[in-house]
Amino acid sequence: MQPFAYAAPTSIVETVSLLTQHSGQARLLAGGTDLLVQLKENRRQAALVIDIKRIPELNALSYSPEAGLRIGAAVSCHRICAEPAIRQAYPGLIDAVSLIGGAQIQSRASLGGNLGNASPAADSIPALIVHHAVCEVEGPAGRRDIPAEAFCVGPGRNALQAGELLVAIRAPSPPPRFGAAYLRFIPRNEMDIAVAGAGASVILNEAGDTIVSARVALGAVAPTPLLVEAAGAALAGQPPTAEVIEQAARIAQSVAQPITDMRGTASQRRHLAWVLSRRALEQAVARAQATR
């Protein structure tokens, strides 16, 4: 591990200034569950590590049915999962966030870090996509929003520009008769990175017999998490039947572009994209129906 400098700014402005000064040489530290391991194993280099846990806005977590959900970029997974109102309103996100590590990792790892690390297999990102989440970033040019599905641009690469940092993740309050789910496949029951993952969300009509709109997103089957818009389009206006779900899952499978690596084979992942999309949709529909 290379020696590095350490800074712990208390404001976003200060952080943006440090990032700008050390362009490309600085890394942000929240829980450190990815970064510290990467630095120790020489998989990432950093001349400066900037600890963002002392910035109040990045540690703020708020939810109300009116304003929706806002998660500071440094908020730990454990804090998100500990809020009953959030658990109720964002079931797909909770499915994903609760999968990120065991109890010790949960209390360190942040949702912002999971996004920033931009792993194609990140569990939280397909879930954020199906919850219509938006990433709020700030940089030298001020604040802007990036939809969750556009945040990752390649394996380990995100859409942040020089000097920018992720401040918070926002998700709108779910409408009535909304349901969401995230499922991943791992060979063991813990300790693994997703071989494939799928998130799904649906909004049902008042009668509960028609899907008003839906989203399906995949993880670990492409260089970035994928929003499968065609699957959502195929579901909209249709009854939530096994056949309709099957068709959407097949569409999701068809857009997967997986690779073979030490965690799984391309054909296994393509197959799992179908299985997991179908199961996630079934669960999302069941949850939406349960809210009626």
Partner: peptide
């Protein structure tokens, strides 16, 4: 689940307990 995974060049790809999958207590 346990196996050494080599690429075509003979590099070991899964030299960690994350990807060399021994059973956990949950398994």
């Amino acid at each position: 689940n346990e196996e050494f995974v080599y690429d075509a060049q003979g590099h070991l790809l899964n030299a960690s307990f994350l990807d060399y999958r021994i059973p956990t207590a949950l398994d």
